[in-house]
């Protein structure tokens, strides 16, 4: 589904990302881990064509992302608050994204009804603008919006950060069920090794822009990662 080849991103003299080859199959859930500055967000930004690669290409379903816009219909992402429109209410935001993805108001209402638990009565029908919601609630809106319109590729940057424990657990359940039928490819990055090993079947470790570990998740993976990062 996604194939990064010889991809590098260089700012001035510092190389922030350098991946020779990374292939992600359809229906896979993959977790990117690494310390600050490892290149996780840079990779996502390249995948979403928000920054330009210095060399190499990324293809998404055989479409070169910086040459065609055709990957947009089946790709959805939530990176940070700049993916939210602050002056809309959550409902209006969901309807807006829905319209972009060919879903009408009724479709969206049905879609939202499955998130009642996660929203915890703090998001819908509160008559508040998104900019006035707490960071955690903003994140919930962003993640749910990224699921609108059955995208085939979902990219979430640090989805667990800022969320309360209950929501973290619910989110994990939700992400796992997404990849159950092997149709949706999920990419997440996280600093939380426990969460990421629970949700993802494959873990990629980045360090200073380089891909240094590529593991299939097993019961020992968490231990291995903990050892790796405890130096």
């Amino acid at each position: 589904m996604i194939h990064a080849k010889n991809i590098t991103k260089i700012y001035g003299t510092s190389t922030v990302l350098n991946i020779d080859n990374l292939e992600i199959n359809k229906g896979q859930s993959i977790g990117l881990v690494g310390n600050n500055g490892a290149g996780k967000t840079t990779f996502f930004n390249l995948l979403l064509d928000l920054i330009e690669p210095t060399t190499g290409t990324i293809t998404n379903n055989n479409i070169i992302v910086n040459q065609s816009e055709d990957w947009k219909p089946f790709t959805a992402a939530f990176i940070d608050e700049s993916f939210l429109i602050g002056y809309l209410t959550p409902e209006e935001y969901f309807y807006f994204i829905g319209e972009l993805r060919g879903k009408n108001k009724a479709d969206i209402d049905t879609f939202l009804s499955q998130f009642t638990e996660i929203f915890n009565d703090e998001i819908l029908k509160k008559k508040k603008y998104l900019r006035d919601l707490s960071k955690g609630n903003q994140k919930k809106v962003g993640i749910v919006a990224a699921l609108i319109g059955d995208p085939e590729v979902i990219i979430l940057d640090e989805p667990f950060a800022n969320l309360d424990p209950t929501t973290q657990i619910r989110l994990k359940k939700m992400l796992k069920s997404l990849t159950e039928n092997k149709k949706v490819t999920v990419l997440i990055s996280s600093h939380d090794l426990l969460h990421v090993t629970e949700v993802c079947e494959r873990i990629v470790v980045l360090e200073k822009g380089n891909l240094i570990k590529d593991l299939k998740t097993s019961p020992e993976t968490l231990k291995e990662l903990e050892v790796h990062f405890s130096v």
Partner: peptide, 14 residues
């Protein structure tokens, strides 16, 4: 500008 990244990655033709 505040949500330009969204517009650039959503299902929108420029």
């Amino acid at each position: 500008s505040e949500y330009y990244q969204l517009l650039m990655s959503q299902n929108i033709k420029y």
